[in-house]
Every structure is written in C-alpha cells, then in structure tokens.
C-alpha cells in the first residue's frame, strides 16, 4: 500500500481564535495536490499545523501518516518521519552556513534514530551530493557558504527551500507559495526543479495563487479553501478555472465560509 497522509476533521486555533474548521484531506504517495484559496483562508495554517508549530493548537481532528498519529510528535520527529514544509516566509539564521545546516538536517532526517552528538554524514560525501543537487538546480556554489536565508532575496529564499526539499527527500511535502516573490523565469526554474526532484517520489501539496507552478506539476487534485475549510475539490481544471476567473463563484456558493473568511482576512491584515 502506498504511504498516505491523512487529515481528518482538523480544527486549529491560534491564540484562541479558530482558523481551521474541520479540514479533510488525503494525499497518497506520488500524488500532486493543489491547494488554492483567497488570503486568510487558512492555507498556511494547515501547513504549519501539519509540522506542529507550537502556536497552532489542534482542538479537534487527526493527522495520520501511514496510520501513525503525528499530532503527538515534535516538529523534528515529524521531519524525521518524512514530512516537509517549504516556508512561505523562511527565517534567517545568521552565522549558520547553508551547507552546515543542511548537513545536520540531512543526517537527522536520513537517520531518524540518530542521537544528539552522534556523527554527521561524512563531509566529503555530503559535499559531493550537495554540489550535484545545486548544479541540477542551477544554483551558484557560493550559495552553500552563505548563512541560512541571511540577506537572501525573496527568490533566493525560495530556491533555498527547494534545495532543502531536494536534499531531504521527504515522503510528503507542502510547498507554501514557493512561487511567490519570483519572476516568471524563476517560477519556471522552480517548477522544473520540483518536477526534477521527482514529484512522483513523494506526495505533494502545492499552495499557490498562480498556475505557473502547476504547469510543470499538473495536479491530480485541486482543493479550494475558504473560511478554514476545504469547500470544493476537483481536478486540474478547477485550478485553471480559479486562476482564470478568481474566487467569486466559490464565494457565492459558500456564503457562510465566505463570511468567516472575510473576518479572518481582516484579522490577518490587522
């Protein structure tokens, strides 16, 4: 049986304010799903809740990976069982070189049983692999020596997230607007990169406003989130429709969710 990420009736609140109100989503290994929806609908919240961000309280529902409940796991345990989240806004870690950070991350994710203080992947082996992956992603070798996201442009940050995805080879990855902040060429490169990393070798949830990222990675399923719920699911055609015509039809069809979304979007701006 293919590995499955299964989200059931997920309710999540931040600081006591409900954001997700019963999300159901099943992603099988090898599938690509697109998650779309207006600002403030809860897309990033879903990604952060899956990774176990401490500020996101799960009040109801379950998240299982291959039948194993991950809600009791710490974020690093979730990374080690094969979950990955590409941040919409990655943070900088000054003074920590990309290469050193990735060597440690890669070691931990590939050897989930590794204890603190145990050996990392040998430097030579790691460097060779990193160099190869960076060449595939057309990244300058200098990148590895820079500090994690420190002084990176928006585009560089997103490419750094893709590089991490390529190195960590998770079972399931959530890409949160990995195309935003990129110009057309960069989006094309990012899309190709994701395709090359091998979306068939993982389950992929692509959170996006655009269709460019989906061009090279046509979704098997498209989901629309509104007011903290997935209100509609369909094929790649749904993504095209939303890209072309926007969310008006969806808003009219689900007035209650739309009302909640307007409150949430307002609070997000505030």
């Amino acid at each position: 049986m293919k590995p499955t990420l299964s989200i059931r009736n997920l309710h999540v609140a931040v600081g006591g304010t409900p954001i997700l109100r019963g999300v159901d989503l099943t992603i099988r290994y090898g599938e690509t799903h697109a998650l779309m929806g207006p600002n403030g609908s809860g897309k990033s919240t879903l990604g952060l809740a899956v990774m176990g961000h401490p500020n996101y309280e799960v009040s109801e529902g379950t998240i299982d990976l291959d039948g194993q409940n991950i809600l009791e796991m710490t974020p690093d345990e979730r990374a080690r069982v094969g979950l990955f989240y590409a941040f919409q806004r990655p943070v900088a870690i000054p003074g920590v070189k990309m290469a050193d950070f990735l060597r440690h991350a890669t070691t931990n994710v590939r050897n989930p049983q590794r204890q603190e203080g145990e050996e990392l992947i040998p430097m030579r082996v790691f460097r060779e692999e990193l160099r190869t992956k960076m060449e595939q992603l057309k990244m300058d070798a200098q990148f590895a020596r820079r500090y994690v996201n420190d002084g990176f442009s928006g585009g560089e940050m997103k490419r750094a997230e893709i590089l991490q995805l390529a190195m960590l080879q998770p079972k399931f990855a959530i890409l949160d607007e990995t195309d935003s902040g990129l110009d057309a060429d960069a989006v094309r490169l990012a899309s190709q990169s994701i395709a090359e990393i091998g979306r068939e070798k993982m389950g992929l949830l692509i959170i996006t406003h655009h269709d460019k990222l989906l061009e090279h990675n046509p979704p098997d399923f498209t989901h629309v989130m509104l007011g903290g719920r997935i209100v509609e699911s369909g094929s790649a055609e749904l993504a095209e429709e939303l890209h072309r015509y926007g969310y008006e039809r969806i808003r009219r069809a689900y007035p209650e969710a739309d009302a909640q979304n307007r409150v949430m979007a307002h609070e997000e701006v505030a």
Partner: peptide, 20 residues
C-alpha cells in the same frame, strides 16, 4: 521551529543558533 522542521532537535536547534 524552522530548524526543527528540518529535523534538528530543540537542543540542536538552540546550539546551532547560539553558535551562529
């Protein structure tokens, strides 16, 4: 949180951030 999402334990994340 960012470092933990990449597999660092809490202690490793803090050690890494302090070293940085």
């Amino acid at each position: 949180f960012y470092a933990r999402c990449r597999g660092f334990t809490r202690k490793e994340a803090i050690q890494t951030i302090v070293t940085g």
